[in-house]
């Protein structure tokens, strides 16, 4: 998304033509519709779509929420590239020479209406990989006394995958998901690896068996399109290859999880009080007792000079 940073500072053309792929579930009709809206510096494609919805045509249907690339609702195919509409600058997709850009619903998802896609199967697949920590000692997990140990290095092993916002862009770019509805897809498989590689998790055998399923990791052909479109650099393509090689070694009896961490021992209260160093209690020239008696007055005029 390197261009997005540069294009935020550029001016888009005065007015842009938003060409939207529409679909009506009642009639089954698909058609393109073009709307002209005024553009301004910093306008995102989502802003443009909302302008269309507010000022041109109320019947346009789309999904969005946070407007800042966090919720993962606004995935669309913009000028042929799967992107988050709220993270795509209009100045990036439209120019003075070509003020028209296209917006289509994400591919590989059933379209409900216009730009709105159905995520039922996406979340079902996510659920299939058991995206949560599984412990043998469920009693302890339900009533934890302390946290599980995890070093910064162990966190980094799973950190990029944990940033997934479930936007589905990776699935819409995947050529395997394009022809195979059963395929778990890059998002679910990256999450499968995220929990398998997590030192706090104890269900790696169970998850590797899920990855070994005919719809699992072995269907990946490493086109890496998932990694190319992911707005959070989750790198599902890389995660799947690590999962796949772990799976191969596991099936040959050569792989097992390096370490599994447990709860850190609780700190025993000693009753001892740590004294503050004297200089921490009062800074020079500060009279704590006097401050407690006096009301706090903030004089703005004094701040200015």
């Amino acid at each position: 998304m390197a261009q997005a940073l540069k294009s935020a500072a550029r001016y888009p053309p005065k007015s842009v033509r938003v060409k939207i792929k529409r679909y009506s579930p009642e009639t089954g009709r698909e058609w393109w519709q073009v709307y002209e809206v005024e553009a301004y510096r910093g306008m995102t494609v989502l802003d443009a779509l909302l302008q269309v919805k507010e000022k041109r045509d109320h019947t346009i249907v789309m999904r969005y929420s946070c407007r800042m690339g966090v919720c993962g609702s606004c995935g669309m195919v913009i000028n042929g590239t799967p992107r988050l509409a709220c993270q795509t600058q209009v100045s990036m997709v439209a120019s003075e020479e070509n003020p028209e850009f296209t917006v289509e619903p994400m591919k590989n998802f059933p379209v409900i209406r216009d730009l709105l896609t159905d995520f039922t199967s996406f979340f079902e697949k996510h659920r299939k990989v058991k995206p949560y920590l599984i412990r043998r000692d469920t009693g302890e997990q339900e009533n934890p006394k302390t946290e599980y140990r995890m070093t910064p290095e162990e966190l980094l092993e799973i950190y990029p995958y944990s940033l997934c916002i479930s936007c589905g862009l990776c699935v819409s770019a995947c050529p395997v998901s394009a022809s195979d509805e059963g395929f778990l897809g890059p998002q679910a498989l990256a999450q499968l690896w995220r929990y398998t590689a997590d030192v706090r998790d104890e269900a790696w055998r169970e998850r590797l068996e899920i990855a070994d399923d005919e719809n699992g990791a072995l269907k990946c052909h490493f086109a890496a399109s998932c990694s190319a479109v992911c707005p959070k650099a989750v790198d599902p393509g890389g995660a799947i290859q690590m999962l796949r090689s772990a799976l191969l070694k596991y099936k040959l009896g050569l792989w097992r999880k390096k370490s599994i961490s447990g709860p850190v021992p609780p700190l025993e209260p000693t009753g001892e009080k740590m004294p503050l160093p004297p200089e921490a209690q009062t800074l020079p020239g500060v009279d704590l007792e006097a401050m407690e008696r006096e009301p706090v007055v903030i004089d703005a005029s004094r701040l200015l000079d």
Binding site: Y159, P160, A233, V234, G238, Q241, R244
Partner: peptide, 21 residues
């Protein structure tokens, strides 16, 4: 695909958010 070699190591994503692989 078989050895998991040559793909990106997990890292802290930074702008411009280009996947490690």
């Amino acid at each position: 695909e078989f050895l998991g070699c040559c793909v990106g190591k997990p890292e802290k994503p930074k702008p411009p958010y280009i996947s490690a692989t």
